[in-house]
Simulated scan of single mutants.
Amino acid sequence: MTPDQVKLVQQSFAKVVPISDQAAVIFYDRLFEIAPAVKPMFTGDMAVQRGKLMTMLGAVVKGLSNIESILPAASALAIRHVSYGAKAEHYPVVGAALLWTLEKGLGDGWTPEVADAWTAAYTTLSGYMISEAYGRPEAAE
């Protein structure tokens, strides 16, 4: 990711924070719509899960300026997701749901540059997490 892309992700996420509860609902609704098979992995309180999602996204977005600082947490999260039943092929679906949610939430603020920046961020992190969890970054392709 370029420094400009990091800045775009951080600036656009700042606009999502005020609607974070709504954004999380939209995200999970979309995820379960496009990948209904993953819904059984979410057995707990979805309000808690939505809060965890937004907290994690906030930490990742903040850490993009120093990506090495978030890699240990990303590795631990990836390994934990395996125990929940997550597979490498789920990562692109989650990414699609996330980008769709951001597009809806940001409206006119979802420019091609912002879309490219978020795509780069998600691709970078998901590739790392897949590698950590499954040992092969190409597994999601």
Rank of each mutant, 00 (worst) to 15 (best):
S69F: 05
L8G: 14
L57H: 02
M54Q: 04
H90A: 01
T119K: 13
Y28D: 00
V9E: 14
A88D: 06
G95K: 12
T119R: 12
M41F: 04
L125F: 07
Q10Y: 09
Y122M: 13
D116I: 02
G127T: 15
M56V: 02
I19Q: 15
L57N: 00
G63P: 10
W100V: 07
S20K: 15
Q10G: 09
Q11Y: 11
E113I: 04
E132L: 12
R80V: 02
A47V: 09
L102M: 13
W100H: 14
A78P: 01
A97H: 10
P40D: 04
M1S: 13
F27Y: 07
E68C: 05
L57C: 02
E132F: 08
L99Q: 07
K104T: 12
A140V: 14
G51S: 02
K62S: 06
P137N: 10
D45W: 00
D108H: 14
L99S: 10
D29W: 13
G107H: 07
Y91W: 04
M41E: 00
A88P: 08
S75A: 13
L102Q: 09
S65R: 09
Q5G: 05
P112H: 08
E138V: 08
Q11L: 09
V48H: 08
M54C: 03
L99C: 07
T55V: 05
I34V: 02
A133C: 11
D21V: 13
A86N: 12
W118S: 05
A115S: 12
D116N: 08
V94A: 11
T119A: 12
S75R: 14
P18V: 13
R30G: 00
R50Q: 02
G109A: 11
S75V: 06
A74T: 07
K15N: 06
W118A: 06
V82N: 08
P92C: 03
D108L: 10
P72C: 11
M56N: 05
L8Y: 13
A121D: 05
V38M: 00
G107I: 08
Y28T: 01
H90Y: 04
T111K: 10
N66P: 01
G95A: 09
I79Q: 11
Y28R: 02
Y28H: 01
A73Q: 13
I34L: 03
E89F: 08
V17P: 11
D108S: 13
L99V: 13
G63I: 04
K15V: 11
F42W: 01
K15R: 15
E68F: 07
V94E: 04
T2A: 09
